[in-house]
Computed example of a mutant assay.
Amino acid sequence: MTHRLRSVGLEYAETAPLRLVFVAEAQAPPGAVFTALADTEGWPRWFRQVSAARATDGGEGREIRLRGGVRFRETVMAAEPAKRYAYRIDETNAPGLRALLEEWTLAPSGGGTMVRYVFALDGPPPLRFAARLARPGVGRTFREAVRTLDRLLADG
């Protein structure tokens, strides 16, 4: 069954009832990191939890499958080269979510890139509690993805 989520804007990255924020450093420049983020089909190569990804609606949307069977239909909310990539989840088969926005912001840092990731969501209290408990794992997953992406970009 597919659940439709509430439509939220970019400000949700700062106003969501629950925000998980993580930062990691990449050696690659912001432009290269952004290009990888905007290449939806490339995500499974560097983000191990993503088993399949494809762009939809001429690149304005995405369909993502995670390992374990969770699916998302998303709208790309921001694609600012070398600065920001953000998407809102519109539909999912994961129960309980009311709204979810993910934002990746990029800033030059010592010849590389400071990558900031915001996982902004709403759901009933048990879901928000579970998300808080999952924070260390989400952070590990994010840092691992950035390291893998950095290696991929270094290898050309």
Rank of each mutant, 00 (worst) to 15 (best):
V23L: 12
S51L: 11
G137K: 10
Y12T: 01
A86F: 02
R147G: 05
E144D: 15
G61V: 05
P125D: 00
L149V: 00
A131N: 14
I64Y: 00
T2S: 15
V8A: 01
G96D: 07
R73T: 12
V76A: 12
G110R: 00
H3N: 13
G59I: 14
P124D: 11
E11L: 10
L18G: 02
A38S: 14
R67A: 08
R116V: 05
P136D: 05
E103S: 10
L10V: 10
G156M: 11
P17Q: 05
A55R: 11
L37E: 08
A134V: 13
E103F: 04
P126Y: 03
A32E: 15
T105A: 08
P95G: 05
A154C: 12
L121I: 13
V76I: 10
L149D: 02
A16N: 03
P126A: 03
F47C: 15
R71V: 08
L152T: 09
T148N: 10
A145F: 06
M1V: 14
P125G: 01
Q49I: 11
L10C: 08
G110A: 01
A36D: 02
L153C: 11
A13V: 04
A145V: 07
L149I: 01
A55G: 12
E102L: 09
L10H: 02
A82K: 04
A26H: 00
A145W: 01
A94T: 07
V118R: 05
V146I: 07
T141D: 14
R88L: 08
D57R: 10
V8F: 02
N93Y: 00
L20M: 15
M77Q: 12
M1L: 15
D122E: 06
L5C: 03
R62G: 12
P125L: 04
E63K: 10
V115Q: 00
L127K: 08
E144R: 15
L5F: 04
P17G: 01
G123H: 01
A86T: 06
A131R: 10
R132Q: 03
F72N: 04
G139V: 02
F129E: 10
L106W: 00
G9N: 06
T141A: 14
G61Q: 02
A82N: 08
Q49E: 13
E60M: 15
L20R: 14
A94P: 14
A38H: 10
Q27D: 09
N93T: 04
R84L: 09
Y87Q: 08
L153W: 11
W104I: 04
N93Q: 04
L152N: 12
R19N: 09
V21Y: 13
T75M: 15
K83R: 08
A107L: 04
E25R: 02
R54D: 14
R84F: 09
A134D: 06
R135P: 07
A120L: 12
V146D: 03
F22C: 05
P136W: 01
L153R: 10
L100T: 08
A131G: 09
G156N: 07
V138G: 09
A24S: 07
D57P: 13
P30H: 01
R67I: 08
W46Y: 01
T56A: 11
K83A: 05
R98K: 09
E102T: 07
A79G: 13
A120N: 07
R71K: 07
R140M: 15
L5V: 05
T15K: 06
V50M: 07
E41A: 15
R88Y: 06
Y85Q: 04
F34T: 08
T141S: 13
P29V: 00
A36S: 11
R48F: 15
G112Q: 00
A36L: 05
T75P: 14
